[in-house]
Design a protein around this nucleic acid. Structure first.
Length: 152
DNA sequence: TTAGGGCTATGC
DNA sequence: GCATAGCCCTAA
């Protein structure tokens, strides 16, 4: 995680989250084509987005459902042993939806962000966080990634 | 084009 | 040595 590998900075992560909030999970190509995001993500491929999102979800899932059944990832990789590392993320998740109850994810969200392919996949709590941020920010055209990042 | 599996590099 | 994060390969 040092040199050779292209670490994701907060700008890129925010852009990814914004793209997902706007176009939905799985529409990596669409996200990359978003003029707003393409500048930030121009060095990332759709596979990169997918992989990053996978990593992000692993962290969230591991931190939110550690009790029951990890198995988010195969080898045990997603099973943290110290909560400290996840404190920040857990704080965010629990702040928004507490324990994830289940999900009626985007259906109840009257935001045009999801209209493309909302029902494509089960959304993670991170999506809810983003949607929460967008809703609360209440910006008509969708919130800027930095704004969302700020909110979070 | 997207999703999943696996490998490797890096940090602790 | 273990855990994490990024990248590559392959299948659908």
């Amino acid at each position: 995680m040092g040199a050779p590998k292209q670490r994701w900075n907060s700008e890129e992560e925010a852009a990814l989250r914004t793209g997902i909030a706007r176009h939905g999970v799985g529409n990596w190509r669409t996200i990359l084509n978003d003029p707003e995001l393409s500048s930030t993500l121009r060095y990332r491929s759709n596979v990169d987005l997918k992989d990053k999102w996978r990593n992000m979800n692993v962290i969230v899932i591991a931190s939110s459902s550690r009790d029951k059944g990890r198995t988010a990832v195969k080898k045990t990789r997603a099973a943290p042993k110290n909560n400290d590392h996840f404190a920040a993320i857990s704080a965010v998740t629990s702040d928004v939806d507490g324990e994830i109850v289940d999900t009626k994810p985007i259906a109840s969200v009257p935001n045009e962000a999801w209209n493309t392919s909302s029902s494509k996949k089960a959304q993670s709590r991170l999506d809810n966080i983003i949607m929460e941020a967008i809703k609360n920010l209440n910006e008509p055209m969708g919130s800027h990634r930095t704004t969302i990042a700020n909110y979070i």
